[in-house]
């Protein structure tokens, strides 16, 4: 059954993206990288990553791309309700060391949850974030990242904010013990290529059309790998996908 959540706050982060701060009756207990299924009655149900969890409060960063996200943007204001189930999936690994978080667009959301968790770890942890956006107007959550990570670098495709270029062209891959990435798939592919070449551990968060969210229906399989985004992911070790169709397609892109 779904949990009923009260919408405490709605903030417009960019023209397309809103932050929803929800309050639950009890703690959700999510792991960084996990997602919830969000149901808006009368409209539909979609997977959304948990961007932050504090006590009974969770943050969801929702980009308007279609029917259900559009309805949420239009209809759900402060004081309204959303219904959620979860948390689901396997998230990012967290252990002391040097972590580089690479995010693209609204894909940065689950990395904030990860940054929070890494910050709270015992032991020596250093966290850098490299966040890429199309343009200055698309940048989001920068202040939040700056509060919890040791260094934030921003890049934009058009150079209107931070360095000009793709985030994958500006990242420093010699420094980290592990790279965690979330964002558009071409970005993830390019990063996978660079990391696998250098032997750097990379965890990537993938998205596919999701239906049951429970690992049964097969809708969110990553093509021909037998891996389900909802249950085996959404976070995968990039090596796991290197042998599969995913990598084959990626190589075609690079060729």
């Amino acid at each position: 059954m779904h949990l009923t959540a009260e919408v405490r706050e709605v903030e417009k982060l960019t023209a397309r993206v809103k932050l929803y701060v929800l309050e639950l009756k009890e703690r959700l207990g999510s792991w960084p990288g996990q997602f919830v299924m969000v149901w808006l009655p009368g409209s539909g149900e979609i997977p959304i990553s948990v961007a932050r969890e504090r006590g009974r409060e969770i943050w969801l960063v929702i980009a308007r791309v279609g029917r259900v996200t559009g309805a949420i943007h239009e209809e759900v204001g402060e004081g309204a309700r959303l219904w959620i189930r979860g948390p689901y999936g396997r998230g990012f690994s967290t252990s002391p060391g040097r972590h580089l978080l690479v995010g693209g667009g609204f894909g940065v959301a689950p990395l904030l949850r990860l940054a929070d968790e890494l910050r709270a770890l015992d032991g020596p942890v250093e966290v850098w974030a490299a966040l890429g956006f199309k343009s200055a107007d698309d940048a989001l959550l920068l202040e939040e990242f700056k509060e919890v990570v040791d260094r934030v670098t921003v890049s934009t495709d058009d150079g209107t904010l931070g360095e000009k270029g793709l985030v994958t062209d500006v990242v420093e891959l010699d420094w980290p013990n592990v790279v965690h990435a979330s964002g558009p798939e071409p970005m993830l592919r390019a990063l996978a290529f660079s990391c696998l070449q250098r032997g750097v551990r990379l965890e990537i968060s993938l998205e596919r059309r999701m239906r049951c969210g429970l690992g049964l229906c097969g809708s969110c399989e990553v093509e021909s790998t037998g891996m389900r985004v909802c249950r085996d992911g959404p976070v995968f070790d990039a090596r796991l996908l290197a042998s599969a169709e995913f990598a084959r397609r990626s190589l075609e892109v690079w060729a």
Binding site: E45, V68, M210, R211, C212, G213
Partner: peptide, 8 residues
């Protein structure tokens, strides 16, 4: 369309 499952 979703929702297509309910866990009981």
């Amino acid at each position: 369309p979703n929702p297509v499952v309910v866990e009981l």
